[in-house]
Design a protein around this nucleic acid. Sequence first.
RNA 1: GUCCCGUUCGUCUAGAGGUUAGGACACUGGCCUUUCACGCCGGUAACAGGGGUUCAAUUCCCCUACGGGACGCCA
Length: 478
Amino acid sequence: MDLKNMTLRTRFAPSPTGFLHIGGARTALFCHLHARHYGGKTILRIEDTDRERHKQEAVDAILAGMHWLGMDPDEGPFYQSDNASRHLDVAEQLIVGERAYRCYCTKDELDQMRDEQRAKGIKPKYDGRCRNRTAPPSDDAPFVVRFLRPKVGEVVWDDKIQGEIRVRNDELDDLILVRSDGSPTYNLAVVVDDHDMGINLVIRGEDHLSNTPRQIQLFEALAWEVPEYAHMPLLHGSDGAKLSKRHGAVSVLSFRDDGFLASAVNNYLVRLGWSHGDQEIFTQEEMEQLFDVCEVGRSAAIFDSDKLLWINSHHIRDAHPEELLEELIIQLEKIEIYGVERDKLLEVIPEFQERSKTMVEMAAKVSFLFVDDLPVYDPAAAKKHMKVASLAPLTELANRLEAQPEWSLAAIEKVFKSILEAFDIKMGKLAQPVRVSLTGTATSPGIYETLYLLGREKTIARLRHGVEFLEEKAAFAT
RNA sequence: GUCCCGUUCGUCUAGAGGUUAGGACACUGGCCUUUCACGCCGGUAACAGGGGUUCAAUUCCCCUACGGGACGCCA
């Protein structure tokens, strides 16, 4: 019967104001990982009690972000606004039970009250002047429903992350449950929904810490079981302040655009506030197996893109080429390279995994293989490596490769060796001009691999072009 | 202003009453090498400050400073 003790149920409850940013993703990740670790369920609930905020594109963007990160919820999305009538019933129940009352104060009155309180240096809060009102000021006077908070005592809970927190009840005020337009507010809705959905662990940002005692008071007033709470330290921007859209907190999906892998983003986020020995690199499975929200630290972290980059490079390296295929194709299309056969890409990817910190970088590095145009030489690379002295070896290399029937790493190597011997030069003197001729740059995978992947036709053509370049240079010199 | 939370290398973190305060990113010296990258070896760099408690405190307690969050008919 007591299902709550059998299954952990936690929820991620964003408000649909925009895309899922990195801070929100971290909260969602911690919910997801903790639930997976304990075989629990995750519920996605959209907190849209403020109707102005309900934007479908925002919901879609959040869903898309979570999907990319591999955190599709087990249940939901549910919309808080769908439960409005239930919320209002509960408010009515509280009025009947004398745990809530109608308040007729106007906004102006309240503003004035808060100003006075602030001027006196005390915490602004509703002074309860309507608590004992017996009749409305007029028949059609608008009113809100306020919670009648306990006047004495304190709220105590053992936060899974923050430890024991106590707040005196007289620090809190009579919060509004129902607005004057008859709609339920967030604090009412969360409590009712968390209860109705059987949520037994609330994982959320520390910015909700001060809501928690009020919500606990509500649970208690309704004689409902209070869930457990875990308040995560916030993620800060490089200026040390809470991450927000103003601080360049962009959609998690923009990380995908920038060539980051979902597993790397998760890996980066999980290490903010949590650690497991000296381990830095975690697979998705390891995170799900090891993460426990109770082990999360209490201090805020600052987003560091260098570390993300490093973790991403590890995930790229550790991935199977198949896992990188889709992302590479996306990035290639962005630089207008279309229709490369998948098998070809699978052959190419392993040569670039160690050399790419992002998939954007990989696409850029790989691109020379797939363009038909002859490469434009990077000036610095050409200046350093395209010397007239290389003219003869390069010419001869092109000749011998052309005469070589087999196109394999071994065959290519053999030809290279024969050139080195014939001209009595070191590898560097041959490989670098070849590299520039083939790629236009001074860097690429191993030279044999580079030729092999480029293919015979393009290799010969580009070598010949390099030879022409050197001939022209020689002509100028004389 | 009031309440709540925090403070170990620049950054993410480990640590525990007795450690040469550990690891990682970044930075940096070197090795490897056909380039780049990877990898390997090394270096710089931290317990916010002041009081207690204690034989001993970075670790426990208090205060201060600094930082953050919250004080809405937003969520």
